Computed example of a mutant assay.
Amino acid sequence: MEPQLSHRVGDGVATVVIRHPAKRNAMTADMWRALPPLLDELTADADVHALVLTGEGETFCAGADISTLRGSPDEAQGLAVLAEEALAAFPKPTLAAIRGYCVGGGSQLAAACDLRFAEEGALFGVTPAKLGIVYPASSTRRLMSLVGPATAKYLLFSGELIDAERALRTGLVDEVLPVAALDKRVAEFTRVLTSRSLLTQAAAKEFANGRTDRDAHWAEQARGSGDTAEGVAAFLERRQPRFTWMP
């Protein structure tokens, strides 16, 4: 199979799959390049209310394809950062569904998602120290915001892998599921996400990501959306709300 990103949309959820099984789903330069325009396409799709990123088979992503670093490591790293930032900026909730290795560039992608659910046995590592690579400042800050300075330094200084249980304790992942239970739990949780107000989610995501200068914008969006009135009416009438706001 040629290295590629594939995707499907169903029940309000876009699922993006990293496919490079010959190299544990390592990301090639072309795959890094393909991610931002794919995310633009899914942003514009009114049927997409949430996004799941996962890997083909039993591995999430073992990092960047090291062969791509021989020619121009700076270019390869730049492509990875652009893809990571595009994923972090996706305006709808994102969830990484992780099994197997989540290492290097795979950890960059997982950290750029809003949430991370992992299967027992998953392994996590941030490995630039094994290659003499300077980890990008933006990626370092994002990692530190998840796990704190001490764990970020442990991961970056050593390049050692940690298991899913330690990743859960440090905040790198949000849930750890038994083997074979990950897909079911992700499907259940994304149904919850798609039933909630995209208005609330989009504003909360922007604020949580550090943009706090648009209170007035979001207040105006709330006034014009009808989502608040619908949410209150649904609560009082003991029914599921039908939210309509779209970005």
Rank of each mutant, 00 (worst) to 15 (best):
E75P: 01
F90C: 11
L95W: 06
V103S: 06
L87F: 12
S107L: 14
A88C: 11
C113P: 12
E119A: 07
A86Q: 03
E75I: 01
E84H: 11
L82R: 14
A89M: 02
C102T: 02
A80V: 03
Q77H: 02
A96D: 13
Y101V: 08
P91W: 03
V81H: 07
S107M: 09
Q77W: 07
R99N: 13
C113H: 10
S107P: 00
P91Q: 05
A111V: 15
V103H: 01
S107W: 00
P91Y: 05
A97S: 14
A88S: 14
G104M: 03
G100V: 04
E85I: 10
G121S: 14
I98Y: 12
D114M: 14
F90P: 07
G104N: 00
A76Y: 04
E119D: 11
A110P: 01
L109D: 11
P93K: 06
T94G: 12
G78P: 02
E75M: 02
A86M: 03
Q77D: 10
G78E: 07
A76D: 07
E119L: 05
G121L: 12
A89T: 04
E75W: 07
Y101R: 13
T94W: 00
A118Q: 13
A80K: 01
P91I: 00
P91R: 01
F90H: 09
R99K: 14
L82I: 06
G121V: 08
A112E: 11
D114P: 12
A88M: 11
A111D: 15
F90S: 04
A96Y: 12
V103D: 03
F117I: 15
C113S: 14
D114F: 06
L115C: 14
F90K: 10
Q108L: 12
L109Y: 07
A76H: 04
L79A: 03
A86G: 09
P93V: 10
E120Y: 10
E84P: 00
E85A: 09
P93N: 05
A76F: 00
C113K: 14
Y101N: 08
L79E: 04
C102V: 04
F90T: 09
P91V: 01
A89K: 03
G105R: 05
V103L: 10
T94D: 11
I98M: 08
P93Y: 11
G105K: 02
A86R: 08
A110D: 06
I98N: 02
L109M: 15
Q108V: 09
S107T: 11
L95V: 12
A80M: 08
E75H: 00
A76T: 08
E85F: 04
L79D: 06
G106H: 06
G78C: 04
R99Y: 05
A118V: 13
L115G: 10
A110E: 07
V103P: 00
Q108I: 10
I98K: 09
V81I: 07
A110L: 12
